[in-house]
């Protein structure tokens, strides 16, 4: 069978997948991406390059993904609706495919008011679900959003989307996931999991609807690096649920960094056991060098 990307292959062969996030630098220094890519090579199946995450200007995801390709890594290019209209989004999908980027993760994006240019105008011409449908139609039907035919070269892409199991109400989240699947999502990366009970509840609902058979679900994991970082995620990152128990463990630990690592190991071990979860997506914010150790310790190394 022909696989679109390494990630597609790993998931199709029913391995438990590992993806890792690489945040591009606030600058044009390509060595940052190259260094992180080399450090993480072999420890994940594909690598997300974020698209100006939290609405802070950084090197573009298209450029970052291209740098990873040169290292022989399988990038997951993130693309948000915040900064581009449907013309630019479709153009970037074509461009990414032309370069050889095979995984594209489509999302609405964090609102610009949270970033470092809060005075900018957000685009939001279309939302993530519409973008997923557009990308799928470009690939499978060979048509643009306006119905016109793609003249030369349909994009060859594996389509990703995100889900937040911790937003409320749960039923609204499930309906949105169903819509993303219907629109054409091939794989889903979730918000980082800290609250395993609520995550389990979300997975149970998904499984009862058979959604885990229709899409590959990768659960998000973030090792907490410090008390400050935990608090920032807990109180300032939208949609993150860090329960009291986890917060207390970090706050009361002799070495919060070590405790953060231990918690991440426990969460990874639990996630590996959950039926319906097809892999993990590790986002180690400003702590990417911990990923090899984490992956080894939970026996997800070597990668298939």
């Amino acid at each position: 069978m022909n696989h679109i990307s390494n990630l597609h292959r790993v998931l199709s062969e029913k391995h438990f997948a590992v993806t890792a996030e690489i945040g591009p630098p606030k600058g044009s220094d390509k060595n940052i991406i190259i260094h992180k890519g080399e450090m993480l090579k072999g420890y994940a199946d594909a690598y997300n390059i974020t698209d100006n995450q939290t609405a802070v200007v950084r090197m573009s995801s298209l450029a970052g993904s291209t740098l990873l390709l040169k290292l022989g890594l399988d990038p997951i290019m993130q693309l948000t609706c915040r900064d581009r209209n449907r013309i630019a989004l479709q153009s970037d999908i074509l461009g990414a495919s032309a370069i050889g980027i095979r995984n594209i993760l489509l999302l609405t994006g964090d609102h610009q008011s949270m970033g470092n240019h809060p005075q900018t105008m957000g685009v939001y011409d279309i939302d993530s679900i519409q973008l997923i449908q557009i990308a799928r139609n470009m690939r499978d039907e060979g048509i643009f959003q306006n119905g016109e035919e793609i003249l030369r070269g349909k994009p060859d892409i594996f389509i990703g989307a995100v889900a937040n199991p911790f937003s409320t109400p749960l039923e609204a989240r499930i309906i949105r996931l169903e819509k993303k699947i219907e629109a054409g999502a091939d794989f889903i990366q979730t918000q980082s999991v800290f609250n395993l009970n609520r995550f389990q509840e979300w997975v149970d609902t998904i499984r009862s609807l058979g959604l885990d058979k229709k899409v590959h679900i990768l659960a998000g994991v973030t090792p907490l690096k410090s008390i400050k970082m935990m608090q920032r995620m807990r109180f300032h990152v939208p949609g993150v649920d860090i329960p009291d128990e986890i917060a207390n463990r970090i706050e009361n630990a002799r070495d919060p960094k070590e405790e953060g690592y231990n918690i991440a190991i426990e969460i990874l071990e639990e996630l590996k056991k959950i039926n319906g979860i097809h892999g993990v997506h590790i986002t180690a914010l400003f702590w990417e060098d911990i990923i090899p150790k984490l992956v080894k310790e939970v026996n997800l190394y070597p990668r298939p």
Binding site: T108, G109, D127, V162, S167, T168, P238
Partner: peptide, 27 residues
């Protein structure tokens, strides 16, 4: 604030908007 036409974004929490928790999430 994001013109979402297909449901709430991932930042909607307990009926509040991610842009400003004083604001309700219209979704």
């Amino acid at each position: 604030p994001k013109h979402m036409l297909n449901g709430p974004c991932g930042g909607s929490q307990n009926g509040r908007c991610e842009v400003n928790p004083e604001m309700e999430c219209v979704w």
